[in-house]
C-alpha cells in the first residue's frame, strides 16, 4: 500500500472540495473494497477523503412516494430496516444474499453501488485490464473463448466482467434512482442510466461526475410492486459471488401483472435490466407459461462465448424460477 493523505470531511461540500483538490483522491466510507485494493496494489489513492464523519447521510425514511436510503446506511441496517422490509423488500432480499454479515456491517449503500470489479484480471497487475489502465484491452477479447465468469450482455473492448453487486440488481428491478449531490446541485438518475457499459476512454462504469457524490438512493413506490424475490445461484450456498442471480418484482392484482421489474446480476458488465421482458409481462396473467416466455425474451440479446455459453440457458431458467418465487412471496412474507 502506498502512503496517502488522509482528510476527514464534515460536510458533503467539504468532501467534494477535498476530493477535487488533489489528484487520485478517493472517498472512503466502509472501506471494505478500497482497503483491499490498496493492499493488493491495484489502486493507489494519493488522498483518502473520509466521508464517514459526515452527518445526515444515514437516514432511512418513507416519504410516501418513495423509500429513501441515505448513502452511509450500512448494508445490514438497510436490509433490516422495517421501512425497506415492508415497502421495498427486494432491496433487503438482494442485500442479504451478498457477502457476509461482517462485510454488510461495514459496507455502505454508496459503497455497494460503486464496488469495483472482482475479475482475476483486474486483480492481477500483470494482466491487461481496461478497468485498471485506460486503453487496455480485456483479455477475454483476445482470448475469444472467454472465461466461465464472462458477462453475457454489454460486452466491449475494455472490460467484460459481470458487475458484482446483488443490491444494485434488486434496486434496479425496483426502478430505483441514485441521488447525486454536487457543490450547488442535486440530480437523480435511475440506476440503468447511472451505470454505463465500460468504455475505452476511462476506467469508469458510472456517470458520477467529478465534483459529485452519491448521497442516497430513492426507491419509488408508484409502481405498486407487491411481490418480489431474489435468487442467487452460485458455486456454493453462501459467501460467494453469483454465477447468475435473478431479481423480480411484480405488481399482481387478481392474478394479473400490472407491472414487472426484472433484472439479473453477474450477467451484464453493469447490473442488467430486462425491459423488453418487463413490457411483455405487463397485463399478462402471472402464470408459469408467461414467465417462461418472458425469460426467453430476456435472454434474446445475450452474447455468449464458448466458455460461458451455458449461462444463456441457465439465466433463462433462473429467471423463470425467480418469477415463480416472486409470485409466491407477497410483500409482508417473513423470508
Amino acid at each position: 500500500m502506498n502512503f496517502f493523505q488522509y482528510t476527514e470531511a464534515k460536510t458533503t461540500r467539504d468532501a467534494i472540495k477535498a476530493k477535487q483538490e488533489k489528484e487520485a483522491s478517493y472517498f472512503i466510507a466502509g472501506g471494505s473494497n478500497l482497503v483491499d485494493m490498496m493492499k493488493e496494489g491495484i489502486q493507489h489513492p494519493q488522498q483518502l477523503v473520509d466521508i464517514n464523519t459526515i452527518s445526515g447521510l444515514r437516514e432511512i425514511k418513507n416519504t410516501g412516494d418513495t423509500v429513501y436510503l441515505g448513502t452511509l446506511a450500512s448494508n445490514t441496517v438497510a436490509a433490516e430496516s422495517e421501512k425497506i422490509i415492508n415497502f421495498a423488500p427486494l432491496v433487503s432480499q438482494s442485500i442479504v444474499k451478498g457477502a457476509t454479515q461482517q462485510i454488510r456491517n461495514m459496507a455502505t449503500i454508496g459503497g455497494n453501488l460503486m464496488q469495483e470489479s472482482r475479475c482475476p484480471f483486474f486483480y492481477d497487475v500483470s494482466a491487461s485490464c481496461g478497468r485498471r489502465t485506460v486503453g487496455d484491452v480485456c483479455p477475454t477479447v483476445t482470448a475469444k473463448d472467454g472465461i466461465r465468469t464472462n458477462a453475457l450482455f454489454g460486452l466491449n473492448e475494455s472490460c467484460n466482467t459481470p458487475h458484482p453487486s446483488d443490491m444494485a440488481v434488486g434496486m434496479l428491478a425496483l426502478r430505483s434512482k441514485v441521488v447525486l449531490q454536487s457543490k450547488n446541485d442535486t440530480r437523480k438518475l435511475t440506476l440503468d442510466k447511472f451505470y454505463h457499459i465500460p468504455v475505452k476512454e476511462n476506467t469508469k462504469i458510472t456517470h458520477l461526475q467529478d465534483g459529485e457524490m452519491i448521497v442516497g438512493v430513492e426507491i419509488p413506490l408508484e409502481h405498486g410492486f407487491n411481490h418480489s424475490a431474489y435468487l442467487k445461484v452460485r458455486d456454493r450456498k453462501s459467501y460467494a459471488f453469483a454465477l447468475i442471480s435473478g431479481a423480480a418484482a411484480l405488481n399482481i392484482q387478481t392474478g394479473t401483472i400490472l407491472n414487472a421489474g426484472l433484472a439479473s446480476g453477474w450477467v451484464g458488465t453493469i447490473p442488467w435490466r430486462f425491459e423488453e421482458a418487463e413490457n411483455f409481462l405487463q397485463g399478462k396473467a402471472a402464470t408459469e407459461s408467461n414467465f417462461r416466455q418472458a425469460a426467453k425474451i430476456a435472454v434474446g440479446n445475450a452474447q455468449p462465448k464458448k466458455n460461458n455459453a451455458f449461462k444463456v440457458k441457465l439465466l433463462e431458467k433462473i429467471l423463470i424460477r425467480t418469477l415463480l418465487m416472486a409470485k409466491e412471496t407477497p410483500y409482508g412474507t417473513n423470508n
Partner: peptide, 13 residues
C-alpha cells in the same frame, strides 16, 4: 458491538 473484519479496515480510522 458489531462484528466486522479487522483486515479490511485501517486502524487509524
Amino acid at each position: 458491538g458489531e462484528r466486522k473484519l479487522s483486515c479490511l479496515t485501517l486502524a487509524m480510522r
